[in-house]
């Protein structure tokens, strides 16, 4: 591909997906770090443009996931930030009105893997096939992981607030 066509393709990808990638990053890191993640994602996309599939969003989010992981471990400042955020950010203030603290706490109590599975579906709004593509697993494996994550979230909520528990919820 010629340089200009590559540029046009990247500009197209950016124009279509950068808002979604930015939202993904902001749900996981501080706002000031999120924009750095976004530009890093598209730098990688630029360098590997020939590998970006037609349905680009899952690929870009998978890339964001690795960059965030890389960021978290690569500098102390960001590690401390993440440490702080992982306690502050989940269970956001506006959600506290409606039983959300239990939900937020329960989410925070889950493993990072479970959390990511749930967030991809509930926050990124990805359908299972695309969420599976982000995690690089099969659709079937994703369905299983989602089922288990949901069950563990329900269990964690029950622990956080036994009065609100609904054992049937895990099955829905």
């Amino acid at each position: 591909m010629d340089d200009l066509d590559r540029r046009v393709r990247l500009e197209g990808l950016f124009s279509e997906h950068s808002a979604a990638v930015r939202a993904y990053a902001r749900r996981r890191v501080a706002a000031e770090a999120a924009d750095d993640v976004v530009s890093d994602v598209f730098v990688v996309a630029w360098r590997r443009l020939e590998k970006v599939p037609a349905d680009a969003l899952p690929w870009l989010l998978a890339c964001a996931q690795r960059i965030i992981a890389n960021q978290r471990r690569s500098t102390r400042r960001q590690a401390a930030l993440f440490d702080r955020l992982s306690h502050e950010r989940i269970g956001p203030p506006h959600a506290h009105a409606d039983g959300a603290p239990a939900l937020g706490e329960a989410l925070a109590a889950l493993s990072a893997g479970d959390r990511e599975v749930l967030m991809l579906v509930a926050w990124e709004g990805l359908e299972p096939a695309r969420a599976a593509a982000v995690l690089g697993c099969s659709r079937r494996a994703f369905a299983m992981r989602l089922h288990r994550a949901r069950r563990r979230l329900a269990a964690a909520m029950a622990r956080a607030d036994p009065s609100r528990s609904d054992p049937m919820e895990a099955l829905r």
């Binding site: 950068s18 808002a19 930015r22 939202a23 269970g91 959300a100």
Partner: peptide, 15 residues
């Protein structure tokens, strides 16, 4: 969980 999405949507950043 979707209802407590901390960042429901985002503006497009600059390239």
């Amino acid at each position: 969980l979707a209802a407590v999405n901390p960042v429901p949507e985002c503006e497009k950043p600059s390239i």
